Simulated scan of single mutants.
Amino acid sequence: MLVELASTPVAAGLFFLYIKDKYEKEPWKMLFLGVLFGLYTAAVVYALGSFLEERFPHEETPFYTAFFSSAGVEEAVKFLFLFFLIWGNRNFNEPLDGIVYGVFVSLGFAWAENVIYVTHPILGGYETALERALLSVPGHGLFGVRMGYYFALGKYRNRKRYLPLAFFSPYLAHALYNYFLLKREPVFWLFFSVLEVRLWGFGLKRIKELQNCSPFREKVSKES
């Protein structure tokens, strides 16, 4: 039951993006690879995190955890996996595909992470499943939107300068997201609420923006 609870918000996020990709659906094989790359990302993040902890012992403060050991490592690895998945792939043939694949990779990672946390003998349970369904999984999806959006700008505006933003934008959002949650003080909950609203606003706006940029939009409109 806990595995199903850990998987449900991930499936909901994937389905939402699949519906939003309404002008030219991505091949099932590529979508599967996106989730699979996200699962691989989780394994690499775990291995890299263990290596860095062993080589560079440190105290786990909220700042260090948020900005380095979680957001820093996770977004860097996700960026690399997403780049190798789509940058030269012929299926990356409209701007919204950047967001679609960015979210599929991010939610693949979130799926693995969620199952680990929710089924943990000490940290897991139904309360953890609910908390992560409301906060962690949507957070990873929204970070994936930011990463994919700047990947799309990098490719379709032919400006490689957007690629650094494909890492730094989700990294900063992720770091602040975690930091505000880890502080667990009323004022930081206020900051978190503002950040959450801005992340959703940015995400929904950019999905709509790239939908409207689709080269397949006119063709689909004529057929319908």
Rank of each mutant, 00 (worst) to 15 (best):
N93D: 15
Y101E: 01
Y40G: 15
E59K: 05
L123S: 12
K208L: 07
L172Y: 04
S69T: 14
V197G: 00
E75H: 06
T61F: 06
F168Y: 13
L96F: 12
P95V: 05
K208P: 00
Y18F: 11
A12T: 07
R161H: 06
P215G: 07
L176V: 01
E4L: 15
K29R: 13
L163I: 12
E75Q: 11
G203I: 07
F191K: 00
G72I: 08
V137Q: 10
V115F: 04
L82Q: 11
A175F: 06
P186T: 05
P95Y: 04
F188A: 02
K183Q: 13
Y23S: 05
P164S: 03
A6N: 03
F191I: 04
L48W: 11
N114V: 10
K208W: 09
P121G: 06
T119M: 06
Y64L: 15
A43W: 11
S136K: 02
V194W: 08
N158G: 11
V105F: 11
V10E: 04
F83Q: 07
G154K: 05
A133Y: 07
P164G: 04
E53F: 12
Y171W: 15
F32S: 15
L182H: 00
G38Y: 06
A43K: 14
G88E: 10
Y177T: 00
N93I: 02
S106N: 14
G38N: 09
G88F: 12
S136G: 13
G201W: 11
V45M: 07
L195A: 00
R161L: 14
E54A: 14
S50H: 02
A66Y: 06
G139L: 04
P9N: 03
V118Y: 12
S214Y: 11
E26A: 15
F109G: 06
W28F: 13
L17W: 05
S169T: 09
P57G: 07
Y149M: 02
K22W: 01
S136Y: 02
Y171P: 05
E209T: 12
L52C: 08
L2W: 01
V100M: 11
F79T: 10
P138H: 02
A42N: 02
L33E: 10
A152Q: 13
L36I: 13
A42F: 09
L5E: 13
N93T: 03
F15H: 05
L2F: 03
R55D: 00
K205L: 13
S221N: 02
L181W: 10
A42M: 01
L80Y: 01
L80M: 08
P27N: 11
K25H: 11
Y156R: 09
F81T: 14
R146C: 09
F180E: 09
G125V: 10
R132D: 09
M147F: 00
L172P: 00
N91R: 11
E75L: 07
A129H: 12
L123E: 12
S169R: 08
K25R: 12
S70D: 03
F191N: 12
Y64G: 02
E75Y: 05
T128Q: 14
W111Q: 08
R157M: 10
V137M: 13
S7Y: 01
Y179F: 15
A173N: 07
R198Q: 13
E53Y: 10
H174P: 06
W87F: 13
F191S: 14
G88P: 00
H120Q: 10
V44E: 04
T128D: 01
G139A: 07
V194H: 05
F168W: 15
